[in-house]
């Protein structure tokens, strides 16, 4: 749609917002995004939501972390091949502990990196295109339509119980 316009409907509760999303799916218009003060399983069920890929970052971080931790302990130990406490120079059990702690550390770093990457944070520009009430108790549904349908879409959202406004 070259002349696509976005209308934001702000709903007073989750139920009416979810109902509006289900109803919008039966129209030619599309749901661009939904804003909510809490994660909403009902809304997730109504939207075409793919599973988050953050977990891949976490997994890669964890695997890297384990090998990094173990390798650090082994490398430093091999610099001076000194027998300590009767254990081998590359002692598996104690070095596993270092590997474990690094696993957690790097998995969490991967988790945060994944979160930042997937959510594209920081994203201060996004603040201009939303209604601040949606971090409070309201639910926002942003729907896209051709320019000619703006009035119809606005009326549709209002009938579903929303206050509406145009989004840039």
């Amino acid at each position: 749609m070259t002349d696509a316009r976005t209308v934001l409907g702000v709903f007073p509760d989750e139920k009416s917002a979810v109902s509006a999303v289900w109803a919008l799916k039966k129209t030619p218009w599309t749901v661009k995004t939904v804003y909510s003060p809490v994660p909403s399983p009902e809304m997730a069920a109504a939207l075409p939501v793919r599973p988050s890929r953050v977990g891949y970052f976490t997994l890669v971080g964890g695997i890297l972390g384990f090998f990094l931790g173990f390798a650090l302990a082994a490398y430093t130990s091999l610099q001076w091949k000194l027998i300590v406490g009767g254990k081998p120079v590359v002692a598996l059990v104690p070095f596993f502990i270092v590997g474990f702690e690094f696993t957690i550390l790097f998995a969490v770093i991967g988790n945060v990196a994944g979160l930042i990457h997937q959510m594209k944070l920081p994203d201060y520009k996004a603040l201009k295109n939303r209604d601040p009430r949606c971090t409070g108790r309201h639910f926002g549904v942003a729907a896209v339509c051709p320019g000619a349908d703006v009035d119809k879409l606005t009326e549709f959202l209002q009938q579903k119980g929303a206050e509406t406004r145009m989004m840039p």
Partner: peptide
Amino acid sequence: GWTGAHEQWRHYTRA
């Protein structure tokens, strides 16, 4: 820049 968009919640709850 948190807005509470469902895309944000999707990644956030997982993380």
